[in-house]
Design a protein around this nucleic acid. Structure first.
Lengths: 147, 147
DNA sequence: AGAAAACAGTTCATTCACTGAAGTAATCTC
DNA sequence: GAGATTACTTCAGTGAATGAACTGTTTTCT
């Protein structure tokens, strides 16, 4: 990013974290495309390990509910999920994966994690160290996956 | 992300890194919006610390050259940059910031770094540790900033 | 030197993710 | 039980991004 900054060490951390973010994003896009999904479709599929109400999916994706309708339409057309009425609230619908949706989700998740950039280079000790730092850093802030 | 996985520690690292990526992305979007820029406009401005050829900017943004034309048009209309002919190749044009573009870039960069999420929670020792891990992890792979 | 190929940027049509407003049906509140 | 709120849908519109066709410039090859 090449940025001037009074605290060069803090700067480098942010730059490198941005680079991590980019690498993960590209990794996600490529993996989704590999299994024939767009990015929002892949995010939705990943989130549907258990059936979820559409509004809940919209909150997860940080988008308008109307957009979830469109994503669900496309995934339903592909036979990857079904809508079912929510037994607790007849206004709401729950999205749930079909068996082929479940299979595709498994493949997607496996590929996403098996070749994730960055961590593969670290040895066991370094991983533990990194994990501990990430836990500390994130203990305050809460966040979700997003495209 | 809630994902089943044989190596729970590796899984948690990847999940947390995804969360970092999301947080940084949101931070970037908000900061860009704060100074009145869209995400691609902000990325372009940041990259123009020195004048760059449009094709070079396209490579940096990982987009088609025709899209850089559109971004440059909008930033030029705002008076933030100028096109100048590349002295070394009359086919090419270089984008360079006007003084108000330079000012806006400085403000943007300052805000981007001053309140970056995650690191602000860590103390000096932890920062050094994190930085060292990031350096190790990224020594192999090269990557750039992207939306 | 001169013709052909490759290249830098632009224009335009189109795609796709996403928003926002209006509508329908079900549930909550008083 | 009337009125407000909520869950999803429909539809029109925005904005980021692509890809093909075009102009002008440089490179390459003989």
């Amino acid at each position: 990013m090449r940025i001037e900054w009074p605290d060069p060490e803090g700067q480098e951390i942010v730059e490198r974290l941005f680079a991590v973010a980019v690498a993960l994003r590209v990794h996600f896009e490529e993996t989704a495309a590999d299994v024939g999904l767009t990015v929002p479709q892949a995010h939705t599929l990943i989130h549907l390990q258990e059936p979820q109400r559409m509004g809940e999916v919209a909150a997860y994706l940080r988008c308008e509910p109307s957009h979830v309708t469109a994503i669900a339409d496309s995934l339903e057309r592909c036979g990857l999920l079904r809508r079912e009425p929510d037994p607790e609230d007849r206004r709401a619908k729950r999205l749930l994966l079909t068996s082929s949706g479940q299979q595709l989700r498994d493949r997607l998740v496996a590929r996403l994690f098996e070749s994730a950039p960055i961590i593969s280079v670290l040895d066991a000790d370094q991983r533990i160290e990194l994990l501990s730092l990430l836990r500390t850093a994130q203990s305050a802030a809460g966040s979700d996956i997003r495209h």
